[in-house]
Design a protein around this nucleic acid. Structure first.
Lengths: 229, 229
DNA sequence: CGGCATCAGAATTTCGCAAATCCGTCTCCT
DNA sequence: AGGAGACGGATTTGCGAAATTCTGATGCCG
């Protein structure tokens, strides 16, 4: 049926991850096996494997012997996540600016161009678009892709994914908002110049977006853990 | 049988992790299900879940549809791991020194004392002792435990575990070796003084240990991937 | 009347088997 | 003789039912 070398569990994993990321499966939702079996058309064991991996990515939480639930959103997690991302992405960019070659620069230019063009085409509310989000992810990956550290890249990937729901929430609540002086173009230009400024720009890019979301929706999700549909 | 709130899969996970960490399951070993089923006394599905989680911790690698294997040791991974640990542990200690309270200081003093006493009792080759290793882990955890970032602590834990096999290898090859001026006591004293020196001491603690291992066993494990019993 | 043990109902976890897939080897064709 | 294709054995992946555990609600005792 599907491609070769690709197991059914990994297919379900991907679909389920997308559903969680796009809040098709609401944060805090209790994940009953019967429901999931019906939704994805696979059996218990296959689900269990996907859930186990999702739980390792901290996109779902597993409560001992009481099943799984979609990871809730919280102010505390957002702040923790942002601080951790700043640490990891700064280092990734720093090393990339040290080691990056022509191919690194080309990757940044290419991914920025594609993101920028689609942004012009879509207009103000482009952040809510799924394709734009994918290109946005590619751009940020391109920035740090020359850091030559699989471990760092993997941590970055996980954190970037975990932050996706918060980004989405921010654009839903206030479409069209973009950090003023810490936009993607500025980051790119400084990064290509190998200027240390790029690091601070990138940091502000994250922290300003977080501050913006907290200002406009800080009390939207519970302080601790709210889990009710 | 076993404790409550503890699932069978998590029990197998823990036992299997210990076996991998202590090289009872050799690096690079192909993990056949039949073998594991016999060794741990559980069924395929249960094993699969444990393997999936171990694979998320990068202690085992999963090859598409070709099963699992114990993560091999390599110079590249050791260097990558060390650099990542330096980044994460430095930040954890930095934040802990900012926020740490009396309880944080007490935790450091207590865990150091226990480690130090056992070290005196065991003598030179204490690093090869399992209990000492546990206390050593507790001490390093105590140093960063006040950073108030679950994400950072989780990343740290994973990296610390992944580095365990290299630490063990180092003490097997050259028992009794300890970093000269970057020992645990010095780190503790500077940390309790909230001196920025502590960060550099901690960094050197890691990088010197790595350099030491590479000097004495750099060519022991293959450059890329060696997988034969 | 309140607190604790008990008892069903429901959900999760575990199991062993069946199907799909892959690896090694042998044979056949060029 | 060299290379491609196919067969057999072994291994992994997927499935649904059985066993274990948890939830929450009822009834009894203090």
């Amino acid at each position: 049926m599907s491609g070769k070398g690709e197991t059914r569990a990994s297919d379900v994993l991907q679909r389920m991850r997308d559903d969680i990321l796009n809040c098709q499966l609401q944060p805090g939702l209790k994940l009953r096996f019967e429901l999931l079996r019906e939704r994805y058309g696979v059996s218990f064991s296959t689900l269990r494997e996907a859930l186990a991996r999702l739980s390792a990515e901290r996109l779902v939480l597993s409560e001992g012997q009481r099943g799984f639930l979609v990871a809730p959103l919280s102010v505390a997690e957002l702040e923790d996540l942002t601080a951790s991302r700043v640490l990891v992405e700064r280092e990734g960019l720093r090393r990339s600016m040290e080691r990056g070659d022509d191919s690194w620069e080309a990757g940044i230019l290419a991914s920025f161009h594609r993101m920028d063009r689609l942004q012009s085409r879509l207009g103000a509310g482009c952040e809510t678009d799924a394709e734009w989000a994918a290109l946005h992810g590619k751009f940020h990956l391109a920035l740090v892709s020359a850091c030559a550290s699989p471990t760092l890249l993997e941590m970055r990937e996980t954190l970037f994914l975990r932050a996706y729901r918060y980004r989405r929430l921010a654009s839903d609540l206030r479409p069209g908002w973009q950090p003023a002086e810490t936009g993607h173009r500025a980051i790119m230009e400084q990064a290509l110049d190998r200027s240390p400024e790029a690091l601070d720009l990138l940091e502000r890019h994250f922290s300003e977006a977080t501050a913006h979301l907290l200002d406009h929706a800080g009390d939207l999700f519970a302080t601790d853990a709210a889990a009710h549909a």
